[in-house]
């Protein structure tokens, strides 16, 4: 892949949004988006963890798994790296930035099981990105995810006072809104294609 990291960064936010075109990170997306504030908190935590683990997993894959010829272990190794990183981050944040810990801390355990984090690590192996591209792709995907969850949370806040058919409340209406958002994002897709 000879696409520049800068282009990849913007493409990951708009044209191949991790959530709206690749459907990754839906579980926490639907459950957390009830409130704008917690959505923002989770989104920021996702950006940070996604950027760091994309770089870490690239290094682990190319300097540990490939030399030893154990690429088939990538699923388990990536999960362990992500879980370990999140634990470590939790300890560091709790020790040095207690205020930040109280606002973001509760979201950190949720992130380990967020498929967006794991999915990005798998994408960068499949698409054969280099280190810089991986970091850019991770950061872009995180920002794209934050953008999507903030938009949904904003719309859902407005929707609270509206009448929604009984069977459609909760997940149903959120999925329809997400679908409309995805439609809007297709408008960007002519700018650059990365897959």
């Amino acid at each position: 892949m000879d696409i520049s990291a800068f282009v990849l960064f913007w493409a990951a936010i708009f044209t191949s949004n991790i959530l709206l075109t690749n459907f990754l990170g839906m579980c926490s997306f639907l459950s957390v988006s009830r409130e704008v504030e917690s959505s923002a908190g989770l989104g920021i935590a996702v950006i940070f963890v996604l950027t760091a683990t994309a770089g870490l997993n690239w290094l682990v894959y190319h300097y540990v798994l490939v030399p030893f010829g154990i690429m088939y272990l990538q699923f388990i190794v990536f999960i362990i790296v992500i879980a370990a990183f999140v634990q470590l981050l939790e300890l560091v944040v709790e020790r040095y930035a207690p205020a930040l810990y109280y606002s973001l801390g509760i979201f950190l355990p949720l992130i380990t099981v967020n498929c967006a984090i794991f999915g990005v690590s798998l994408f960068l192996v499949i698409r054969d990105y280099n280190f810089l591209q991986s970091i850019a792709f991770g950061a872009g995907s995180g920002i794209g995810w934050l953008l999507a969850i903030l938009m949904l949370a904003g719309i859902r806040a407005k929707l609270k006072e509206k009448l929604v058919p009984a069977g459609l409340q909760g997940a149903g209406i959120s999925l329809i809104i997400t679908g409309i958002m995805a439609l809007a994002f297709i408008g960007f897709s002519g700018i650059v294609q990365i897959q």
Binding site: L20, T21, F23, P165, G167, L168, A171, G172, I173, L175, I176, T178, G179, I180, A182, L183, I186
Partner: peptide, 14 residues
Amino acid sequence: MAPSAFFILALMIW
């Protein structure tokens, strides 16, 4: 494309 998947699942849940 992606949006149809969201719509169909939503209608199904409904």
